[in-house]
């Protein structure tokens, strides 16, 4: 599929592609929004500047995915970002959780970034060419986020004492939601069949586990011995009150007059 026009001719293909694009866009927008909440609150001024760059990259990626959706006949990117209901949001619940402390924010970001890297890699040869091209470009930026988050994660763990304790608590909290990042939603089988994404979710999850176990070992953390069932499946539009609050805040000005130019 070279273009939106071609994709639109195949109903089943279009349905699956759109659903995946919403997952990608909502993941990045939600996390970018959360990242931006660290503004002015990071442990040092340098860290503040760095986190803001990450936040801007994430929101920038969301814009890219929303634009692809718009080309496929969906509403304009701002409407998609600001005016969709909670039940239409497809981000993983982990990413909508409040920031918590620095350890939680770093550990969550790192775990998601590793997943995102694997997912992007599986998109670089997507049958939907506009997506494949974007994935290559986005992956180049995400590489730096990974370096940044990995180094924080490992060093916080290795520092021991309070930092390690906080990191352990963060992992525990993240583990309640982590299951929700793996998987591509209701159209998973179709997405792989159509080669929109070139690897099944389960295979990516195994690779994620391998990479993450290595990072846990570096950080001198114990790998959790079991998975937990998730409370909400974000990929199916189930979300926590934390996302509801986030969306209220994000759209506060937009809702004053959604038809106005701001």
């Amino acid at each position: 599929m070279e273009s939106a026009e071609q994709a639109q001719k195949n109903e089943a293909y279009l349905l699956a592609l759109r659903d995946l694009l919403y997952q990608l866009a909502d993941d990045e927008l939600t996390l970018g929004h959360r990242d931006s909440e660290w503004l002015g609150l990071s442990p040092d001024i340098e860290g503040d500047v760095a986190f803001s760059s990450v936040a801007q990259d994430e929101v920038g990626h969301a814009v890219f995915y929303f634009e692809l959706l718009h080309e496929l006949g969906e509403k304009d990117p701002d409407r998609l970002a600001f005016a969709r209901d909670l039940s239409e949001r497809k981000n993983a619940v982990l990413l909508e959780r409040e920031n918590g402390d620095w350890a939680y924010s770093i550990a969550r970001h790192f775990m998601y970034d590793v997943w995102d890297d694997l997912r992007l890699e599986a998109l670089t040869e997507s049958s939907y060419v506009p997506l494949a091209k974007g994935a290559i470009k986005i992956r180049r930026e995400e590489y730096y986020h990974l370096l940044h988050m990995h180094s924080y994660f490992v060093r916080l763990g290795q520092a021991g004492k309070e930092a390690k304790k906080r990191l352990e608590l963060a992992v525990k909290a993240i583990w309640k939601d982590i299951g929700g990042i793996f998987g591509f939603g209701v159209y998973e089988q179709k997405l792989v069949e159509f080669n929109i994404i070139t690897k099944p979710a389960e295979e990516l999850k195994q690779r994620w586990v391998k990479r993450m176990q290595q990072a846990f070992a570096e950080a001198q953390l114990t790998w959790p011995d079991s998975w937990e069932p998730v409370q909400y499946d974000g990929r199916r539009g189930e979300h926590s009150p934390e996302l509801e609050q986030l969306l209220q805040t994000m759209s506060e000005v937009y809702r004053i007059d959604p038809t106005a130019r701001w």
């Binding site: 442990p43 040092d44 060093r155 021991g160």
Partner: peptide, 13 residues
């Protein structure tokens, strides 16, 4: 609130 992070990042590892 970020003191523990700054200290951790300066810890020799």
């Amino acid at each position: 609130g970020g003191r523990w992070v700054r200290e951790a990042m300066l810890t020799k590892t």
